[in-house]
Amino acid sequence: PPDIPEVILKLLQLEPDEAQVKGRIVACLQQEQGKGRHERLSTFGLMCKMADQTLFSIVEWARSCIFFKELEVGDQMKLLQNCWSELLVFDHIYRQLQHGKEQSVLLVTGQEVDMSAIAAQAGSILNTLVLRAQELVLHLHSLQVDRQEFVCLKFLILFSLDVKYLENHALVREAQEKANAALLEYTAGHYPHCADKFRQLLLRLAEVRALSMQAEEYLYHKHLSGEVPCNNLLIEMLHAKRT
């Protein structure tokens, strides 16, 4: 079998311990639920808290990531401000890929939620967003996206060339180029029967971006309605691009 490119091997090593992440988030949410009746969060509020805690893990991952750790904090912040919601959405999507059930959603806590329950309880916009994510899951499933490709795509999301005013633009470009080359090499070598898998994956990434932009707008709208718990990383990131 062909080799796995060095970049991808390194990224695989940097993947967080899922059980640890899950345990931390579950503990945090249980603490929320232990509060008095008047302080307790709504279901939506809990989902926001869950996303907020997942973001913490994403930042932890980015911090230790190759190339990223070479950047100054200012540039690190710009990259994450650009892609935080994409990384959240992609994390959700990959979880569903592994979960492998069209009719239910697997949360980072390990809880499984039926699509019918989401349809019944979530507003129409949120329901639409979740359905669109499920569609993307199906597309990626038919493309046979594997873990090696997942970590590479995650890295490509982080090192987006869309970000302006970077101090070390050259390093970001180098990271992008290396990751693209690795993904091309990997897909061509391991899926020779799957014509153009590299380009197909990048097309799906664009869809992840579009979906995450919609999700951000939805969340911002909910925030303006006072429904999103405040003073947390999620709200900060939401505000970062909206001056």
């Binding site: 930042v59 911090r63 990383l233 900060e236 990131m237 505000h239």
Partner: peptide, 18 residues
């Protein structure tokens, strides 16, 4: 003040003593 992203900066800057 809302958008100086202080928490993100702190998370990126902090020292891990592992």
């Amino acid at each position: 003040k809302k958008n100086n992203n202080a928490l993100l900066r702190y998370l990126l800057d902090k020292d891990d003593t592992k």
